[in-house]
């Protein structure tokens, strides 16, 4: 039994037998923004990377390096200027139908109850309102927000709101989760709790995750692989596999091997930050 009540509707093709096909694949993807009145800006230099089915991959990098741009392109919010994005081995024009997207801000609608906010995604995808609501409620009860289903976002703490936003994302029957600094606005303690909670939720159905953050420890703690992006125009500069067995507990973050990885990633980012600073 999978975590998400809607997993049976998803009919996620099981790709385990076909290891050679990547869930997400970027081939020489680049993005130039037309500046309108100003000069065009190259946000992403030709970038290649892949994410396997069920893999949890994080992208870290200095601010303004184009990591969100990469995520937006995978989400299908806009197209790359060059290169190709493949999902399940084929170049699809409408990538949106494969991806559920979550932003740094919770984006809960203030006039909807928490239950109705969590139901919003599948409601828009066509699930009848009543069904959507009861599915949302099941999920909320299972993950500790049962007492708040009828509350409005304004009555919840930041951490709870972000959990609700994550549930809205999870409830969407999409194979790929794109999380753009989902805990970036939270305080350190809440953030640590949310990370553990995310892993607990993710362990239940191991959907493919592409996670953006500037917090190196967060990336290493959550991911199977961490990609470091260079300063603008961004491209993948370093790839760090995290071979820590799952399920993980907070303890791993104090181990020596973990700290070595952390040092390596931090050094690489530091170089890029210096580069970025000296350019401006």
């Amino acid at each position: 039994m999978s975590l998400i009540a809607t997993a049976e509707d998803v009919a996620v093709p099981r790709l385990a037998a076909e290891e050679s096909v990547h869930r997400i694949e970027l081939r020489a993807v680049a993005k130039v923004f037309d500046g309108g009145d100003t000069d065009p800006v190259q946000a992403v230099a030709p970038t290649d990377f892949t994410v396997a089915s069920g893999e949890f991959v994080s992208i870290v990098g200095p601010s303004g390096c184009g990591k969100s741009t990469v995520l937006n392109m995978v989400a299908g919010l806009f197209d790359p200027t060059a290169g190709e994005i493949r999902i399940n081995g084929t170049a699809v024009s409408d990538r949106r139908s494969f991806c559920a997207y979550m932003f740094q801000r919770d984006l809960l609608l203030p006039w909807r109850t928490i239950r109705d906010n969590v139901a919003l995604g599948i409601e828009i995808l066509g699930t009848p309102k009543g069904v959507a609501r009861s599915k949302a409620e099941v999920l909320l009860r299972r993950f500790g927000l049962g007492a708040f289903v009828d509350k409005r976002p304004a009555q919840l703490s930041g951490g709870m709101r972000q959990r609700a936003a994550l549930m809205r994302t999870l409830l969407c029957p999409r194979e790929i989760l794109l999380l753009d600094e989902p805990f970036g606005a939270l305080d350190a303690l809440t953030r640590a709790n949310m990370q553990e909670w995310l892993l607990e939720v993710w362990e239940q159905d191991h959907r493919t995750v592409l996670f953006i953050t500037h917090d190196v420890e967060e990336a290493l703690f959550l991911s199977d692989r961490v990609l470091v992006m260079s300063a603008r125009p961004g491209s993948i500069k370093l790839e760090v596999p995290v071979r820590v067995p799952r399920p993980r507990s907070r303890k791993v973050t104090t181990s020596e091997s973990f700290n070595k990885l952390k040092e390596k990633v931090l050094e690489s980012i530091h170089d890029e930050s210096v580069k970025a600073m000296s350019e401006t």
Binding site: L77, D94, Y101, C172, L178
Partner: peptide, 29 residues
């Protein structure tokens, strides 16, 4: 409507009518 909510709706492939009725009108009240 904030830009990010627009992006959220785009990622959900919401129709114009859905965005207007579920987001813009209640926000305008």
């Amino acid at each position: 409507m904030e830009r990010d909510i627009g992006h959220l709706m785009t990622s959900l492939q919401a129709t114009r009518a859905q965005v207007i009725l579920k987001i813009q009108v209640p926000a305008a009240v």
